[in-house]
Design a protein around this nucleic acid. Structure first.
Lengths: 245, 245
DNA sequence: TGTTGTGAACCGTTTCACAGCC
DNA sequence: GGCTGTGAAACGGTTCACAACA
């Protein structure tokens, strides 16, 4: 008995690997510019070139959304755009709260691209009385006292944390108690949450430190030495985007 | 004949996997707070708990820096801090330029944590005449005309790109021509560079979209349906930090 | 002919499990 | 007894290579 899964255009979101989830928005952006230019079809080779990915990866990624392509021709741009939109539910925006209106929080609020394709801010919060009540990108900064009420009212599940590391864990506990289950954390600290809560860590300073590391490697390689005592080396680099904690 | 590698405390930086490179700064931050508190020893279990990592991962990561631990006791905090410092050459800061003094650029310049542990800004640049000449975090914003001169003067290899997507590719070509080989790109665009150039992509909007995706998955799972036609589902999430392009 | 969709090989990373050592 | 360092298995993701097909 075969379970009735994968109907005509049905596919299983939860089977989409994380790496693919992170690439689909990249494809989406490229395809949308194609759409604006009236281009109707694209091959995995061309999309791969523009996205910086191997064509086989592109095909494997898109195949997760169903069998969207046409052999000998390529992918219909509009079809793929629609399917990615469906997967990310860009049609029904997800309410998001942002906590911490410092420099980074302000930058994100004002950024055109950040709250885009699904997520929509419904409230921004800070602990500093000097900041509370000011307006930022059309939102009045609220006291953290209002967190629970706003989360309940809009059924918020996603929070963006742009506050300082010492404040983060305490706020997270309130958020989780209020029903938030997805956190995007910019604070340089490891958060401890119940297992049903998902956290993405973005640590900008680590990204830069990693580049410094690779520069050091390259310099030592040219100088022909290991760290500590002398040694023999060979190798090179290549680079990427995101990982886990 | 065995090549003379790995002396007393010698180790091969280029053999350190990327995943480990991204975790070492996390350990470093935790260990430094331990050091300040006068704690001298830590086990992989405790460090793992604080870093959100499996103890075996911690041991494997630290073992890349040499055999630093003591069986039965754990790791000497000061020793590990020193070794991570050496690997990241935090002692000899790497000069960095930042291009694009918009909201995000400003946020990074003012952030305490961003230029830390190695990287040090030597110049910040923008194309907008309104912004050029203003001061930001102690740096006068320079015209992009000055890029080549500053890069040559300080032997800059690392650039942080916080400019808008349409400007990015053009600036990157100038940077690469001037000798920059490591790029930290915040613009939502895939950059095309010669193969000796390393790029790290940080796309903040994708991070948030990924969370939106997982919320959608969870909602559909509870609703018991796949995307497209109906279907049968089971599964859950779990999350991370960074990947590649 | 040209391009997709995918089995199978490959590769980097994580985790288990335990021998080795303090 | 407790904890490290590491073989070996497991896992997730990428890429090759080719059959299927418009």
């Amino acid at each position: 008995m075969t379970p009735m899964i994968d109907g005509a255009s049905g596919f299983h979101l939860e089977r989409i690997p994380e790496a693919t989830v992170l690439r689909l928005p990249v494809y989406q952006r490229i395809l949308q510019t194609f759409q604006r230019q009236g281009i109707q079809t694209i091959s995995s080779a061309d999309l791969g070139r523009l996205a910086g990915e191997n064509p086989a990866s592109v095909r494997r990624d898109l195949s997760r959304l169903g069998s969207l392509g046409t052999r000998g021709t390529g992918y219909d741009v509009a079809t793929v755009v629609d399917q990615i939109d469906r997967a990310f539910a860009s049609t029904s925006p997800k309410p998001v709260v942002l906590i911490g209106v410092g420099n980074l929080g302000r930058a994100l609020i004002h950024s055109k691209g950040f709250f885009h394709n699904g997520p929509t801010p419904v409230g921004i919060f800070d602990a500093d009385p000097e900041v509370i009540g000011t307006t930022e990108g059309g939102f009045v900064v609220q006291s953290q006292d209002a967190l629970e009420a706003v989360i309940a009212e809009h059924q918020v599940k996603i929070a963006v944390l742009t506050l300082s590391a010492p404040q983060a864990q305490g706020v997270v506990e309130r958020l989780v108690a209020a029903g938030v289950t997805y956190l995007l954390n910019f604070a340089s600290i490891t958060l401890h949450v119940p297992s049903h809560v998902t956290i993405r860590y973005v640590d900008l300073s680590i990204e830069l430190q990693a580049l410094g590391f690779y520069q050091t490697v390259e310099e030592r390689r040219r100088g022909g030495m290991s760290v500590g005592s002398a040694g023999i080396l060979t190798s090179q680099t290549t680079m990427g985007r995101r990982t886990k904690r």
